[in-house]
Design a protein around this nucleic acid. Structure first.
Lengths: 168, 168
DNA sequence: GCTGAAATCACACATTA
DNA sequence: TAATGTGTGATTTCAGC
């Protein structure tokens, strides 16, 4: 992946390609090319470029937690607000590193105003959730306050970024 | 997609397959089969079954918002807590339907205790964010209270579900 | 954007437990 | 009987032009 912060230039085809991929990464290169009305070769070259530029971060299958629960038992999704004792960069970065390293943390956002971080976590059960809280919050003296809300239903999961020049 | 709520039975190979796919849906069937030490045919059959059972909800490319911002200008990610006037199912379902239909809403969770919903939204800019707030909250008399936190950095995005019998 | 070689996929069928 | 693995033609990928 290209690591420089050079200015990246994207034309309308790149944007349509990114948009198609963030909605359905299961399409074959051929199907994708047809949808964008470009040749398969062009489509492939562009996709490779967008990957090498780091714009496409990962491709993943999103599993359905409700369905999976029928087979594995219910997991526990929580939205957690975390406030630290101090807001200097070292303190923030320290907590962030620990949060990101925790496998049960699915998402981590630095936010403002309000708490310092919002996490989305998913644990197998309540003991696992409590153990995560022990590791990540109780054992960390830089954590001042924690509020956890448990998800009773994930109504939507569609992390699509708006690609403005598309006119969406 | 199978719509019945029949008991779904998953063996260790199914779980390893789901786990591989939720971490990397870019693998070819051949590579996947090799990783799981099964034949390509088995791998493909199993994948199809998991899709038809609705366990695999979608395949998507996750874009990097920081990188994309270099080309498009920064967007605005917010975590929003929403409390409604009443908590009866009709009121909850009404708001949920509107939230899910809003394209800027990336994720929607019903939660308890605390607020009734937590949303993760992404808008092109502040005017777009305010317009979303107008549509979704101000215009809805069932909404009592809204708290929005703006994300200054997405530190982690890895919506992997724990597949317990794997021993992870 | 086109073409062709190499890889991959997807299906039918034989095989095993 | 149900699931796996092997083999085949068809499709797709991906290089050079």
């Amino acid at each position: 992946m290209s690591e420089e912060n050079e200015t990246i230039s994207l034309d309308a085809t790149d944007l349509r390609l990114l948009d198609a991929l963030q909605r359905d990464a299961g399409l074959s290169n051929l199907a994708l090319a047809e949808r964008l009305a470009v040749s398969p070769a062009t489509c492939l070259r562009r996709t490779r470029r967008l990957e090498s530029l780091g714009l496409i971060e990962q491709r993943l299958a999103v599993l359905n937690p409700q369905r999976l629960a029928l087979a594995l038992g219910h997991g526990l999704t929580a939205v957690i607000e975390v406030t630290l004792e101090r807001q200097d960069e070292a303190t923030l970065a320290g907590f962030e590193t620990r949060a990101v390293a925790e496998p049960t943390v699915q998402q981590c956002y630095r936010v403002s105003p309000g708490p310092d971080f919002v996490l989305v976590t998913h644990c197998a059960d309540m003991p696992a959730h409590l153990a995560m809280g022990q590791r990540l919050f109780t054992a960390d003296s830089s954590v001042r306050n924690v509020k956890a809300f448990f998800s009773t239903k994930r109504s939507k999961f569609a992390p699509y970024l708006p690609l403005a020049p598309l006119g969406r």
